[in-house]
Design a protein around this nucleic acid. Structure first.
Lengths: 89, 89
DNA sequence: CTCAGATGTGAAGTAGACATGACACGAGTA
DNA sequence: TACTCGTGTCATGTCTACTTCACATCTGAG
């Protein structure tokens, strides 16, 4: 558990609520792809796609760009704060 | 040096030419910020901003979103393939 | 010349992004 | 029933994103 200042470890989502993971999964299904197909498409392992969809996971910006591109979305749409996407409430 | 399949380590830029670093630096200067000011603004150390601007560095997507936001740009603009931004040549 | 500010270098430490590979489970189908 | 497919879990290993801190260099101002 991280408390206060980080000591190593990457900058992650403000909320560990899996929002981005859900967004990536929804978009992948909409694109008619399996985890394996998306993984192959962006050049990573299926394990990495699993982590992205199910865990509190912060991919590198370059992997995020590839995934967004493969899914026809922008990085902001998939990993941005949902508040930026639509009004709260 | 990485040859063939990666064995750990993050997905990074196709070209280690510092393109993104230059883009981040240019945009930061345009915004009239020092490295220290940008670092404080996005909640990382100045050392991290230095690495981002000078090295073959792959920030996490969440840090990239914060930096892009602080600089009034999109992640695609700063870290995307330059070819995507404008025709080559 | 001195000083402040901005920036770059280097080292060491911690948490995590990626990988491999095996196995388990549920759903759908013949 | 057996099989295939898609997905999740787990363990282990390698490389890197982040940190702190000290110090060096360059530039501009007084």
């Amino acid at each position: 558990m991280r408390i206060g200042k980080r000591a190593g470890g990457v900058v992650r989502a403000e909320r560990a609520d899996g929002g981005a993971g859900e967004a990536v999964r929804a978009r992948r299904k909409q694109a008619g792809l399996t985890q394996q197909a998306l993984a192959a498409s962006v050049g990573v392992s299926r394990q990495t796609i699993i982590s992205m969809e199910t865990g509190d996971y912060a991919p590198s910006v370059y992997l995020a760009l590839k995934v967004a591109g493969a899914l026809g979305a922008s990085v902001e749409e998939l990993w941005g704060d949902p508040v930026d996407q639509a009004p709260a409430g």
